[in-house]
């Protein structure tokens, strides 16, 4: 009798697991909120467990940095001189660009950095590519915010709790990012497939891509601001697909920035009332 009871319990929990899977598939808001509350509660515990790894990693980074400090210093001095020259040129170009945009009445969207966050946990799975960061609604983070670093696009927030958020990485199978070819301006979609290289979708047949082509965000969809570096074309598949190597090294992420992009709002066109001549006006002869 007890064995039957145990089998019934097992059957109940198996059915419950399948029910959860089906509910999750339909993007149930309740499930998403519950998930957010639970991962939010466990973030402090994960941080405690991560402390020895974090401390060891910081120490090894410090030792590595000290070892290369002199060579880095020389390199940075040269780079600084180059950057100063480029800054002058860039400022001139920016002024020109602004003037031309004003002439054409083009309005840029506004990009706001909401917060800088630390990565607290990683999926560490071949099938799911996401991570948890230690910023949430308390820091102003909302679902759908773009997550970037100085190298380029990392992903977007998909589930936000009070003090933590889940970030869907650009290499996840569910990730789709509107991008464009920097040279030709052709708009395409960058699709993740859980592999290190992402796939270009909806490439027009008449357009050609070359190895090394730079891929930037197109700004379409309103999640990612335009012209952020995403990656470079790195290989062609045997079926003619285009693979992109991301500009961000997803294996070396420690800190990220959560950004909000607001598309420029245009003044609505108000139709002026058309003046019609009075019908019963007498025509003067």
């Amino acid at each position: 009798m007890k064995k039957i009871g145990q089998k019934f319990t097992a059957f109940f929990f198996i059915v419950a697991s399948i029910a959860l899977l089906l509910m999750g598939r339909s993007q149930s808001a309740l499930i998403e909120q519950t998930r957010a509350q639970i991962f939010n509660a466990f973030i402090p515990a994960i941080k405690v467990v991560d402390f020895p790894r974090g401390a060891t990693s910081s120490l090894s980074d410090w030792i590595r940095n000290v070892a290369v400090v002199f060579s880095d210093n020389q390199f940075l001095r040269e780079e600084n001189a180059n950057l100063k020259r480029q800054l002058t040129e860039a400022t001139e170009l920016e002024i020109d660009n602004l003037r031309l945009k004003n002439l054409l009445n083009i309005k840029d969207g506004t990009l706001t950095t909401i917060t800088a966050s630390r990565i607290v946990s990683d999926s560490n799975s071949p099938f799911f590519k996401s991570m948890l960061i230690n910023s949430g609604t308390n820091d102003g983070v909302k679902k759908g915010h773009a997550v970037v670093n100085e190298e380029g696009v990392i992903g977007r927030t998909i589930n936000v709790a009070a003090n933590a958020s889940r970030v869907l990485l650009l290499n996840d199978i569910n990730s789709r990012i509107p991008v464009k070819f920097a040279d030709s301006g052709v708009n395409v979609i960058l699709a993740g497939d859980n592999s290190p290289l992402q796939l270009i979708e909806f490439m027009p047949e008449e357009e050609k891509a070359n190895i090394g082509d730079l891929i930037l965000t197109s700004g379409m969809g309103g999640v990612f601001p335009p012209d952020l570096p995403v990656g470079v074309v790195s290989e062609f598949t045997e079926f003619g697909g285009i693979r992109v190597n991301p500009s961000v090294n997803l294996n070396r992420l420690n800190y990220v920035s959560v950004t909000e992009y607001e598309i420029a709002s245009f003044p609505t066109l108000i139709e002026e009332p058309v003046e019609t001549p009075p019908q019963n006006e007498e025509v003067e002869e």
Binding site: L20, M23, S123
Partner: peptide, 16 residues
């Protein structure tokens, strides 16, 4: 929940 995998996947597999 912590891995970001579909909720119900791990309970199902571990119970089996």
């Amino acid at each position: 929940i912590l891995m970001g995998s579909p909720l119900g996947l791990m309970p199902l597999l571990l119970i089996v």
